[in-house]
C-alpha cells in the first residue's frame, strides 16, 4: 500500500553550453515546478554540466508508440535524395 505522499515525476532537460539544444538527462521527483528546477540543479549539475534547465511533468509528455515505429520512421528510409551525398559533384566545382 502506498502512503499517497509521493511527489510527481519530472523529466529534466539540460543545456550544457551555449549553442547546444537542451538534452534529456533523466528524471526526478518534486512537489512543484520551482522545486523540480532546484532539485534538477542539485541532482544533475553538480559537475558543471549545465547552464540552463527545463523541467516538464512526466505525465505531460506525449510519446510516439513503438507499435507505430515502422509506419512513422520506415518511409524516411528510402528518401536517399534528401541527403547531399545523393548528388555526386565534380571535384573541380568548389563550395558546393
Amino acid at each position: 500500500m502506498s502512503t499517497g505522499t509521493e511527489w510527481p515525476l519530472w523529466e529534466v532537460f539540460i543545456r550544457s553550453q551555449h549553442g547546444l539544444a537542451h538534452k534529456h538527462v533523466g528524471s526526478l521527483h518534486a512537489p512543484d515546478a520551482a522545486m523540480a528546477i532546484r532539485n534538477a540543479r542539485d541532482v544533475y549539475t553538480r559537475r558543471n554540466e549545465g547552464v540552463s534547465i527545463w523541467v516538464a511533468r512526466s505525465a505531460d509528455l506525449h510519446a510516439s508508440s513503438p507499435d507505430e515505429r515502422d509506419a512513422l520512421f520506415d518511409p524516411a528510409g528510402d528518401k536517399v535524395y534528401r541527403h547531399p551525398t545523393f548528388f555526386p559533384m565534380p571535384d573541380e566545382v568548389k563550395h558546393l
Binding site: 511527489w7 526526478l28 521527483h29 518534486a30 532546484r38 532539485n39 542539485d42 541532482v43 553538480r46
Partner: peptide, 11 residues
Amino acid sequence: PVLEEDIAQTN
C-alpha cells in the same frame, strides 16, 4: 526526507 532533498541539503 527524500533523496532529492538529501542531495540538495548536502550541497
